[in-house]
């Protein structure tokens, strides 16, 4: 059994069914991607696993470290060892990077905080005392959010669209960091509609219309996604036009 197991998840928001029947299993110490077109229910799945308020499944079970966590609040899931990096990170007026990183850090020492920033290619001298607000670019905030999870040393990191708002150099560093986290024992669940991000994963689940379509090695899913999903004018009209 994987570190994370999701069975037959169903969830509606405002009477609209977003997840119809989604299951997945993520082995410990791997990078698993949930891939699919826009509107497939990927982010909803990530929020539901993390326990974001308002994302309560009507049916199905979420198990983390062999424990059913459906009834746990978001902070309880955080303390159990999982965390979430948003597609668009929050802005915190006045809250310094130092205090933001410290919030969930397993090791709150200055060295640990500095190392976390270096890990996302940000100079600690330039960033530790800055606020996590509009003075930072979206890419900087994304990297700082990632650093805030690195210092948690979580068992599972859920990352929603890691390439959103990130330049090429920063994305390369983030990919390196994902591999570093995997080597350190953190399991990574990526949510993406990007082939490039999918390429970082070991295994993947293809989701469309709130249903599982296919699961397997990331390379196989990538081929299927490119051949079948990207040209799909119904579920991926923007990408279909590009191809």
């Amino acid at each position: 059994m994987g570190i994370l197991q999701v069975d037959n998840l169903k969830l509606s928001i405002n009477d609209s069914v977003i997840l119809r029947d989604v299951s997945l299993e993520v082995p410990a110490g791997t990078i698993h991607a949930v891939v699919g077109p826009n509107g497939a229910g990927k982010s909803t799945l990530a929020y539901t696993i993390m326990g974001v308020p308002g994302y309560i499944p009507e049916h199905g079970e979420i198990r983390f470290k062999d424990q059913v966590i459906n009834d746990l609040e978001i902070d309880e899931r955080g303390r159990l060892g999982m965390s979430l990096a948003w597609q668009e990170p929050a802005r915190f007026e006045g809250l310094t990077v130092r205090n933001f990183l410290s919030a969930g850090a397993a090791d709150k020492s200055e060295d640990a905080l500095r190392d976390a920033l270096k890990g996302v290619a940000l100079d600690p001298d330039d960033y530790l005392d800055r606020a996590v607000d509009d003075g930072l670019s979206g890419g900087e905030r994304k990297r700082i959010e990632l650093a805030s999870i690195v210092v948690m040393q979580p068992s599972l990191m859920i990352m929603d669209e890691p390439d959103s708002g990130i330049d090429v150099d920063a994305l390369t560093r983030i990919f390196e960091l994902l591999q570093d986290m995997k080597e350190a024992g953190t399991t990574v669940l990526l949510v993406t509609h990007s082939r490039e991000v999918l390429g970082q994963a070991d295994t993947a689940s293809l989701v469309c219309c709130g249903l599982n379509v296919k699961e397997g090695p990331a390379e196989d899913i990538k081929g299927y996604f490119e051949d079948k999903c990207i040209p799909c004018p119904v579920h991926n009209p923007e990408l279909a036009e590009e191809t």
């Binding site: 965390s83 006045g94 969930g104």
Partner: peptide
């Protein structure tokens, strides 16, 4: 903001306090 800090394992009261201290520290 609240959910981000709670997803790091902070309880709600501590997360609210952290956010407010940030706002008031400007």
């Amino acid at each position: 903001q609240l959910q981000t800090l709670m997803a790091r394992g902070m309880d709600e009261e501590s997360a609210v306090e952290t956010i407010i201290q940030g706002l008031l520290s400007q």
